[in-house]
Design a protein around this nucleic acid. Sequence first.
DNA 1: AAAGACACCTGTCCGC
DNA 2: TGCGGACAGGTGTCTT
Length: 270
Amino acid sequence: MPELPEVETTRRGISPYVVGKKVVSIIVRQPKLRWSVPESLHELEGEKILSLKRRAKYLLLESSRGTAILHLGMSGSLRVINVDLVPEKHDHVDIVFSTNKAIRLRDPRRFGAVLWTRDDPLQHKLLRHLGPEPLSEKFDALLLYTMSRKRKVSVKQFIMNAQIVVGVGNIYASESLFMSGISPKTAAGQISLKRYEKLVEAIKVVLSRSIEQGGTTLRDFMQAEGKPGYFQQQLNVYGRRGEECNVCGSLIKQISQGQRSSFYCSSCQK
DNA sequence: AAAGACACCTGTCCGC
DNA sequence: TGCGGACAGGTGTCTT
């Protein structure tokens, strides 16, 4: 479900209910997520949340004793609720605050994660080797150009590789490639610096626009307060197989790359 | 080292 | 209308 814009939308939505608030309890109804929820997570109980940060698609709830690391996987969402709201089937974890509000993790497919670290979360095994944030200055055309030389992997899979750049998931990879006029099938190593400049600009524009719109709701993504995202109205190719290209009218194609669907316009993207 | 396949899990939608 | 199968917004791990 969530790519970077959806995770960032979630972070902004829950932030007022979390930062500076005291955790009174953590309820784990289903510990079997992607990894088992560790017992040590309860070290957060009694602690005040000092900050709520995002790195890639991970959310980091920092306290003086350690940091909870949350990931929403494919189907996870976080909602702000009143503590007495009856949990439903896939509501696996609640972090309850002294305000009588809680953040509730719902995740039907259970590809998400809730972890705990006492150390610098950025040095955690899962975060340590991540590439730059796409909306930071560290992410630029020269980086993509340099990292891609001699690489035969398709450009679409290349920009979805979190070691190269984080946060570009399946929707926004297709959308960014459309905006920059690059075919998803092109080998990463064959793309010029000039074209990577276009691609980097497109990734930044697509992601920031989506954040402004509250993310993309395809099926079930909801912001923390229950509203859907609105960016799906601006999708040019994702999920539009067989429909007319908004620019040239050709029919949008769908192919499979690395067992993920890619959507593109074969006349606008070369 | 890079690239590809597969794993994890449940819900929904498509085609017959 | 019902059913099986394909597919879904992610990513770590194993094999080649």
